[in-house]
Design a protein around this nucleic acid. Sequence first.
DNA 1: ACGGCTGATACT
DNA 2: TAGTATCAG
Length: 691
Amino acid sequence: MPVAKPESSDARVIAHIDMDCFYVQVEQRKQPNLRGQPTAVVQYNSWKGGGLIAVGYEARKFGVKRSMRGDEAKKICPEIQLVQVPVARGKADLSVYRNAGSEVISILSRKGRCERASIDEVYLDLTEAAETMLAEHPNGILELTDEEALKSHVLGLHLDGLNARDCVREWFLMNDGDHRDKLLACGALIVAELRLEVLKETEFTCSAGIAHNKMLAKLTSGMHKPAQQTVVPFSSVKKFLEPLHIKKMKQLGGKLGTSLETELGVSTVGDLLQFSEENLQERYGRNTGTWLWNIARGICGEEVEGRLLPKSHGSGKTFPGPQALKTLSSVQKWLNELCEELSERLQSDLEQNKRIAHTLTLHASAYKLNDSESLKKFPSKSCPLRYGTTKIQEDSLSLFHTGLREYIGIYNVKAKGSNQHEWAITGLSVSASKIVAIPSGTNSIMKYFHNEDQNCTSRKESDYVFTNDAASLSSSGHGSLVQLHLAGSELEPGEVEAKTQQDMPGLYPKENGTEVSKDSVFGTKFTDNQPLSFFQMKEQKESLKEEILLPPSLAGVQSWVGSKPTQSKMEFVEEGSGLSVKSGKQKRKFDTEKRTTPSILRFFHSNDEASSSSDIGATTDGCKGNLGEDVLRRSNSWNYKSDEIDPVVLNELPPEIQAEVRASLLQPQTQAKTVKRGSSIVHYFLPTKNS
DNA sequence: ACGGCTGATACT
DNA sequence: TAGTATCAG
């Protein structure tokens, strides 16, 4: 749920940009003859004309609404042009809209920190740009105000008698005005400029809200559509919010908003003001309580995250009612389609953005026939993600089996075996998450992630095994380190070292290495045959929480040990299809814990003996087989908390590495506190230019 | 027996 | 953690 964040004392300038009926615009650009005509985009069309997912403004005049069926829309608006969403692999494919969104983002990210909020929405932090502009034009910005900015809507402006336009001009000029409002005026100018650039370069129009925080910007970006912008001066916040229905507020459109209405009798934001923070905390918990208290007053400290790329990719499809999947083979067929799309998107993310996803998750929805517990939810399952279409397909199917067994229950499995008519699948989706950027300058790693077609015919260098094992490997026992194993590769360790060094100049410390302090080590020891380089984390004084500090992709290229382990306390164990590492200490721990295994992170592995033999069981029924068990094992196999990188350690790294580590951090919300405003983390997420 | 598909976030 | 729930558009 919502989380409260204090708002900094300094005034910020935040914009929320919202593309106007985006999918429709994309289609109209593709087919210019549709411009000016009532248009909507529909998804599938065999059943009642398909579902509308975007409606153009001309069509809205007729009362056409999103989530109407195509047939309904035709009734209301016979002239309506219904454009279908592209279909690929038997399902809707939104990639053209995703790519169009990327075009926009790459333009908007020019002027400040930029956060991709959704496929057609963006937040911008324009504080620095606005401050700079104001500093350069202390006597007013009239000469800068262009036509577009003067069309802004300024909330709370009294338009008594005067021409609205003159009022706005006056507001932009205010010499006596509040400093904060002057900043907003600059922000409005910048946004107007950006919107024009977007229009010029993409042919898309958008609307915008400009305010001191995300909440207010978001709230107002949609107030005047299409192709207009709205400013929220500090002084008008209170009056603006008071009469607003609470369900209009982001996060309050659902159950929480309903609860406020029914339990507290609150219908407008103003009504919320009567409740003390303590009261709200008692009812909704500390975080949510404070958050509610704050937003009622227009306070919202949420930062604009510098993120231009999505944090996950997914591909899914529903199979409503009669189309529900009732056989394993139909499930497999559809999973294969979904995985194919996902794999394609992962591959292009890798090529365009140099990012690697680490987790594969399967979601399904199902109902049971003739069963009292037919409401039970199908469990989601996940495992480490291996690149390659068929690997993703295999793993997804295993995850499905694991989920299915849990769903129908172990007893039924035993009794009924492969009875195919106890369940029906109404929805399937596969997604890839924990996406981490590969540090720049490590292009060599790219070739280890190619498509499986290439994979089969090329060398077997894909035998790297990233081992990422908290607390088990460091000599101290408390620290952690991350290692890259070279298992059975045709490349010799020396070759790899040379390669890596060549690709990452400056990555390795100088000959004699750095001084190693007692508590905190960025140690690297080279011996002739045993290059041993690793980060060892500082021992936590207060807690023994395990922590792994680097995303595996980073860690993997920055440190590795030869194929022979040197640490005396370790033993390498062949287990299933991968290498495991155990320390004596950890062994005990694992033995007492249910189905825990030493950690192994394998991004991929070769189409090798070990993997194919035990990895994925037969796709037949598998009520008894250990289908999915390997997957389950892998799913426990790694963890790290990148936000727990010891700053002492981090600061000892070469500057460029530091930057990369920071850029790769997961959990940006904790990071946001320490990131200086305007420090350009976005730099590491270069926009992808889609042609 | 239809609002589909895709994403983010927070809790546990 | 992984898995669930909620929310949004």
